[in-house]
């Protein structure tokens, strides 16, 4: 990808989706107008360095995109760490992760309470705070890295053929990509998928080795049923394959068909795992024979019932996602040659 092409592409990833094409068209026209103007003023074509300077003066993609973003806050401790463009994404991911954690912990504690088990407030809050701390740290560090990435200028601006590149790239970007809608896998989306999957993988590994992270104080009494052991390895493989798919699309955003086919295969693999889980019947078992007393029977029954409904919801969401991806695969397959650029 050429420097201007990448410059506009980086900006486009950070722009509000509903106004993206319109803003890019105007930015492209502004760059081209400025180049033409300067050339007619000097009565000679601009040198590569001059054109490079022109783009650099406009600011980093993050700086340009920030102007079009409604400022919903920033993260700053002295210097700004996460700017207004990424901040809404940061808050969304953080809330999702923390919400999910609270939901799981809340379910466990509610089940404990409903089954008449002793529930200690101190234990509950220490679990919640520990989880929030982990999520906050992990998500913040990841977003700091993303912010750093988008704050940099593209590295390859010092090319000899920059002058030629500028016109070609604008022409290509405006005529092919913008007028016919950009048909590339958003690098930002790929990064987001990579991050989300990595967090999911780490979380899964953590709860596997330390069940108290998900069951809290009930970990001494309840354990995951054998079905979870059966689906563990395939799930790890799916998560790794998803990260691999996202990495490929970060490097090769034009590989739309690869993204579509890989996503669909992974969707079906995910459905197979959910199917296995759904019909297992039991998802939580006593951690030890001692825990299988009549008093805790009610606890297992409540948790298993809730897990059943939770799995049906997961199946519905996953199925909707699979259908959506299948439709996308069909459409892109039909318009394949143009979508591959």
């Amino acid at each position: 990808m050429q420097p201007v092409d990448r410059y506009l592409k980086n900006i486009s990833q950070l722009l509000p989706a509903d106004r993206r094409d319109d803003i890019l068209r105007e930015l492209s026209d502004d760059i081209e107008s400025e180049v033409e103007d300067k050339q007619s003023e000097l009565d000679r074509p601009l040198t590569g360095a001059e054109q490079l300077e022109l783009l650099k003066r406009r600011g980093t993609p993050l700086h340009v995109a920030a102007g079009y973003t409604q400022n919903k806050g920033v993260l700053a401790f002295g210097p700004q760490l996460i700017g207004p463009v990424l901040f809404p994404f940061y808050v969304r991911v953080l809330l999702f992760n923390i919400g999910l954690t609270l939901l799981v912990l809340g379910t466990v504690f509610a089940a404990l309470s409903l089954s008449g088990q002793p529930v200690h407030t101190k234990e509950f809050f220490s679990n919640v705070l520990f989880q929030i701390f982990i999520q906050l740290t992990a998500v913040t560090v990841i977003f700091l890295l993303v912010e750093k990435h988008f704050s940099g200028q593209p590295h390859e601006w010092n090319k000899q053929d920059f002058e030629k590149t500028l016109h070609t790239a604008i022409e290509k970007r405006v005529k092919e990509k913008i007028y016919k809608k950009m048909r590339e896998v958003s690098r930002f989306d790929s990064i987001a998928v990579f991050i989300a999957t990595a967090v999911a993988l780490v979380w899964m590994q953590s709860i596997w080795t330390q069940p108290f992270l998900i069951f809290g104080p009930a970990a001494s009494q309840i354990a995951l049923a054998p079905v979870w052991h059966r689906i563990y390895f395939p799930t790890v493989l799916i998560l790794l394959a998803t990260m691999f798919r996202a990495s490929i699309n970060i490097a090769r955003p034009r590989w739309i068909r690869f993204r579509d086919v890989a996503s669909t295969i992974l969707d079906f693999a995910g459905l197979a795992i959910l199917y296995t889980l759904l019909f297992a019947g039991t998802w939580i078992v006593p951690a030890s024979p001692a825990a299988a007393n009549p008093n805790s029977r009610h606890l297992f029954s409540v948790v298993n019932e809730w897990a059943f409904y939770g799995l049906w919801i997961a199946v519905a969401i996953h199925l909707a996602q699979t259908i959506k991806n299948l439709i996308r695969l069909y459409k892109n397959w039909r318009w394949g040659p143009t979508s591959q650029g």
Binding site: I23, E26, L27, D29, D30, R58, A66, G67, Y68
Partner: peptide
């Protein structure tokens, strides 16, 4: 006027404005 000529017209009257400020302001 369109964006670029507007920016020039402003600059000619000693009111320099960055593209990153002008276009969001116009919107």
């Amino acid at each position: 006027q369109y964006g670029y000529t507007l920016r020039k017209a402003l600059a000619d009257r000693r009111t320099d404005i960055e593209e990153g400020t002008l276009y969001p302001l116009l919107r």
